[in-house]
């Protein structure tokens, strides 16, 4: 356990060194936040209460999205690119013989990264949004804590999805297509473009049950206080369930892949 804590700290520190990149990312997220905020204002002016949000809740949703883009890796990438390149070069064989669990190792590292990016890239856009617009941010510290828990669960789901994407390199020579497809799904079905509650009818119902909704839709709703009591537990349970299912799937796929490596001798 201590080992994985160290790995996580390493992931945190590694991303802490990219200061200019972080500043550039903060700038871009803030610009996008402003643009989306105005489109939401226009939409909620026409349809107050759309998707169950009032206007300031809708704006809070926008800025929560910009806050979580980097931490929850809504655009994909991060460790999965590294994993893919280690698989394609064959270096993965070395990793598999190490006395550590590959999935937990990458999970720890990625959570370290997420923690840094939540602070480094998430806080400023959210603060900028709160200064420029009237946001429905909670006053209760407890709500913020539950939000952080939900974000953490979302990051685990995001990791588990990208781990599967990374492992695809065992079967594919060029993983660019899979990466693109995965980014597309996570952008659209996390709610980053539009809250999933605004999606029409059955399509919206299904979208809210897919794993990507755990990345942004659920944490944003937790922050907005849309889940209370049992509903809150159900929401966190939904995230945890997807996390477990996808992590287990990742393990199974890894086992199959490892057998292939052993058979082919790397």
């Amino acid at each position: 356990m201590r080992l994985y804590a160290l790995v996580a700290a390493g992931g945190f520190r590694r991303y802490a060194t990219y200061r200019i990149a972080t500043a550039a990312g903060v700038f871009t997220n803030t610009v996008f936040g402003f643009i989306l905020a105005y489109t939401f204002i226009a939409l909620w002016d026409e349809r107050p209460g759309l998707g169950g949000y009032d206007q300031s809740q809708a704006l809070t949703f926008v800025w929560t999205g910009q806050c979580l883009i980097a931490a929850a890796a809504l655009f994909g990438g991060g460790f999965s690119d590294e994993l893919q390149s280690r698989i394609s070069t064959g270096d993965i064989a070395i990793d598999l013989y190490r006395p550590v669990d590959l999935q937990l190792w990458y999970l720890a590292q990625d959570l370290g990264r997420a923690a840094l990016q939540l602070i480094g890239r998430g806080a400023v856009p959210l603060a900028a949004g709160a200064l420029a617009f009237d946001l429905a941010l909670p006053a209760s510290p407890l709500r913020w804590l539950v939000f952080l828990l939900s974000v953490a669960l979302g990051c685990v789901v995001s990791f588990a999805l990208r781990y599967l994407v990374g492992l695809s390199a065992f079967w594919l020579l060029d993983a660019t297509g899979v990466n693109m497809f995965s980014t597309m799904l996570s952008m659209f079905f996390s709610g980053m473009l539009l809250p999933l509650t605004v999606f029409p009818g059955t399509f919206g119902e299904i979208a809210q049950r897919l794993p990507w909704s755990a990345l942004l839709q659920v944490p944003a709703d937790v922050l907005l206080g849309r889940h209370e009591g049992v509903g809150l537990l159900a929401a966190l349970g939904f995230q945890a369930a997807w996390a477990l299912v996808l992590l287990a799937l990742g393990r199974a796929v890894q086992a199959v892949a490892t057998r292939r490596v052993v058979v082919q001798g790397g």
């Binding site: 200019i20 550039a24 990312g25 871009t28 610009v31 643009i35």
Partner: peptide, 18 residues
Amino acid sequence: ANDASEVQNAFTYGGDTL
């Protein structure tokens, strides 16, 4: 600013969204 490639995204993709 070697690491700042993301800044231009704010004006290209961001501009497009605007």
